[in-house]
């Protein structure tokens, strides 16, 4: 498949209460093999998927939050977080897991995958996408 499309995965749901966050992540991981232009957006309660310190030992469910840290190794390094959603939940960037990737075009320098963007900026990113998968 020669065509490259811009895929945007939109995450608006918190983890653990429902399975959407986990199964969305599974699509992202499989999709990474297709060499498309991939971006992830975290909006509304979706920002809770990336919070630090998740510990699921007490609820008997797998803690899948470490998987987000591996996304950079799959060339998934455009992670957009809506600033308004973070602020509405009393969160800052420091409350989120640091997600990094190594930039092969810049002597493998370690860079941040997370970009906190305004509603206007995110609106533009969405509009430029070819395929939007919502979870």
């Amino acid at each position: 498949m020669s065509e490259t499309k811009k895929f945007l995965y939109v995450n608006r749901k918190a983890p653990y209460g429902t399975i959407y966050a986990l199964e969305s992540l599974e699509v992202v991981l499989i999709g990474a093999a297709f060499e498309q232009d991939v971006a992830l957006a975290f909006i509304d309660d979706g920002v809770y998927q990336l919070t630090q310190g998740q510990d699921t030992t007490g609820i008997g469910v797998k803690n899948f939050s470490p998987t987000y840290k591996a996304l950079g190794d799959f060339d998934v390094n455009k992670i957009y977080i809506e600033k308004e959603s973070l602020e509405a939940r009393g969160l800052t960037l420091d409350d989120l897991m640091p997600l990094k990737y190594e930039d092969e075009d810049d002597d493998w320098a370690e860079k941040d995958s997370i970009h906190v963007v305004s509603s206007e900026e995110l609106s533009e990113i969405m509009d430029q996408s070819d395929v939007v998968l919502s979870f």
Binding site: V10, R12, Y20, M126, S129, D130, V131, V132, S134, F135
Partner: peptide, 8 residues
Amino acid sequence: HDTTQSWL
């Protein structure tokens, strides 16, 4: 429309 986004 060019793209559809479902707000689930």
